[in-house]
Design a protein around this nucleic acid. Structure first.
Lengths: 202, 202
DNA sequence: CTGTTTTTAATACCTAGTACTAATACGAGC
DNA sequence: GCTCGTATTAGTACTAGGTATTAAAAACAG
């Protein structure tokens, strides 16, 4: 695999990736991985505003714990513009304070995800939609104050399944991309019933 | 609320509770909470085999991340004995190494949960069962080598919803209790379809 | 070859602990 | 009262995984 020495910006990209798919790595491990000193990794993290491993994992734990993970339950994140049902759509979202990591101004990934997810669901003409997803990629960190534009395109539709591609941009720079599979359901009695039962059980 | 000084064992109980519903508390915060010194808290944690806050949260993060939380996907945890379909059941489970927290021998909660969940699902006579749950309580830590006996009783059944109470014991001492709601479904085409589609999308 | 950027090094400090030793307080029985 | 044993608190040395800062060395670009 890639052995030649990476440039700073290449390393930054690789670092974002590496931490994305294993947030538990310490600076020491990352330094070994990229064959640079620990200090270099720390500088990189500063520039990329990536918090230390303990804060990263604490945040992960908190997210999971406080069930903010009920992303599916969020109504709509972002303002819808240009919706052509079952074909394409666009949404604009400006993250607010409280959506960032402690201290710095980098927007937490699941809000970016949530905007994309909301849009994917919104453009499908169905009463109830379930999402499956794959090939999600966060390309650059998004800052507080950035204006996120998500664009959706339905690539295929088969039976009641829609394959939707979402690209999210900040000032024409791609920050996120993902493929979503939306299941449109008419018969949604089951889900509704489940919710009401859970509610009735206090 | 409870102001009088707690005895050691009372404090131990309270400590388990406190950490259960906020695993992010540091020893310092716990010490303030119980009006004892940090050292006392540390001694308590030792005795109860509760790891430090950083390990607790790292574990939480890992659990959430590695989606071992796909507990629903686990086939069956524990050996079924005495099953009377749609009425009651019992299962026996002896946790193995690897199901404990790093270092000490305390069994991780989701295995206890998984046994209960498995049993609840198993005693319901249906092709596919979805679980909703509530009122879960871990009462005492379970050690490696403990033999966990889970007992299930169907309390109510309405339409295709079953309300199941599970109590888990170690040597006749209650270690876990929970109420589960099981949704029995005949028409499980949707779920199956969802899986095959996700698989076909590599 | 000089100037700038990038990388590495070195140091002091921080949090939230472990591991250990030692001193003190508290209650029960006599 | 005093004494024994448990419970609690105190104190010290050490650890991981950092932050923050200053300074030196290396790499590269014109």
């Amino acid at each position: 695999m890639g052995k030649r020495k990476l440039s700073k910006s290449e390393r930054h990209q690789a670092l974002l990736q590496a931490i994305e798919n294993d947030p538990f790595k310490t600076d020491e491990e990352l330094a070994e991985l990229f064959k640079v000193s620990i200090q270099t990794i720390r500088l990189d993290r500063m520039e990329l505003r990536i918090p230390e491993v303990r804060k990263r994992t604490r945040q992960l734990a908190r997210d999971a714990y406080s069930k903010v993970k009920s992303i599916g339950a969020v109504d709509v994140i972002g303002e819808l513009v240009d919706v052509e049902l079952n074909v394409s759509g666009k949404s604009i979202f400006e993250p607010e304070a409280g959506m960032t990591f402690e201290g710095n101004n980098v927007v937490r990934g699941h809000f970016i995800f949530a905007q994309a997810n909301s849009l994917a669901v919104a453009i499908i003409d169905a009463e109830v939609a379930l999402t499956g997803f794959s090939h999600i990629k966060y390309l650059r960190p998004v800052q507080l104050g950035d204006r996120m534009v998500a664009k959706a395109k339905v690539e295929r539709a088969k039976n009641h399944r829609f394959f939707v591609r979402i690209n999210t941009y900040v000032e024409d720079e791609l920050v996120f991309k993902g493929k979503f599979i939306i299941f449109a359901m008419d018969d949604h009695k089951l889900l509704k019933e489940r919710d009401t039962v859970l509610a009735e059980e206090e």
